[in-house]
Design a protein around this nucleic acid. Sequence first.
DNA 1: CGTTGTTTTGAGACATTTCAAATTAAGTGG
DNA 2: CCACTTAATTTGAAATGTCTCAAAACAACG
Lengths: 197, 197
Amino acid sequence: MSALNLHESCVALLRGVVKISRLLTDGRQQIVSLKAAPDLLGSPFAPPGEVSVRAVTEAEIYCVPRPALESIVLQNRVLEHRLHLRALEDLSEAEALLLTLGRKTARERIATFLLDMAGRFRSAELGKRCDCGLAISEPGVVDLPLTRAEIGDFLGLTFETVSRQFAALRKDGLIEFTDARRVSVKDRTRLRVAAGC
Amino acid sequence: MSALNLHESCVALLRGVVKISRLLTDGRQQIVSLKAAPDLLGSPFAPPGEVSVRAVTEAEIYCVPRPALESIVLQNRVLEHRLHLRALEDLSEAEALLLTLGRKTARERIATFLLDMAGRFRSAELGKRCDCGLAISEPGVVDLPLTRAEIGDFLGLTFETVSRQFAALRKDGLIEFTDARRVSVKDRTRLRVAAGC
DNA sequence: CGTTGTTTTGAGACATTTCAAATTAAGTGG
DNA sequence: CCACTTAATTTGAAATGTCTCAAAACAACG
């Protein structure tokens, strides 16, 4: 199944969306990063960390043995610089999520999440699948690639709380649902306020 | 006061401990990283992120203008590689904290924190100040450089909850206090269990 | 049309926060 | 060295947000 070991291989994500999680022994998990194609999962030189990789949509990947990638990168200064920049961006994203998990209320977390997703998964109205911004996209309409439970695992909440907070934002007129996975942002300004910053 | 702008300059931390935080407009804050000398604060190439840097102990720093550092690093492949590795380690640490903030209980967070600190701030019994592992150190005794409020800002808790959980761990015999800032780990095994992983 | 998984909604339990006050520790100036 | 102020810490009691448990509605699929 999720037999992807990022210590042995790095993975080029060619199509789809994957979640990268850290696990507790009793099954609790925290998604630490969402990756959408095209992107690289794992990094040569990354320290050993217990992460789990799972697709959230159908996905297409290409595995590269780590030692091979390492030697390539060490021979290519520009490539290493780009990986370096990407690591710094990932760190910055992780820090933003730390603020969300450590200090925001459930409502603020959901609002933050929606703004984040609105920037990443703009819905392609006429396409069948979100193919990552390449198709004709509807501003303000978001295709959520995650289930309520996965959103909970991303935001440190239960799926019931996620569902209830979505309902509350809808009742307050900040968002609207066409179906459970398709949201449209009705009032971005108030959504930003609801996100707490 | 904390007039350190990591976008303009990087800062070599020569002595002491500093906290790097992200802020919400209403004053809530989340510490995203603790740095102890010797270390580098900020990074050339780091994307703009609203962070605040504050010393938690007396500290000695040396500022380096970012453009200067950037050009040095771009001319030195080995140096960039080391910064790259550090960024990946920081990312891994941030992910560990994400798991803590998103999925652990207050008790588990405090236990996790103590194990983390035990690895970093081993007390120098006979020295006056923790000078970061160079002096004669007592295994299992930790000098906490943070106030209860700061520990709360690190773990996403209030300072009252921090204080109560310390008291609970003490009552259960996992730790002992000589004073509020000096803890000794009495049962590392049970502390690990209490940390949830 | 039954099966399975996702989502919504409700009611009660519980962990953590909030508010408040007392205690201890740490300067500071007389 | 002592009184005074200020900050940090502990502890208590009540409020509250989120979780847990449970059930129903809904959607997807063979």
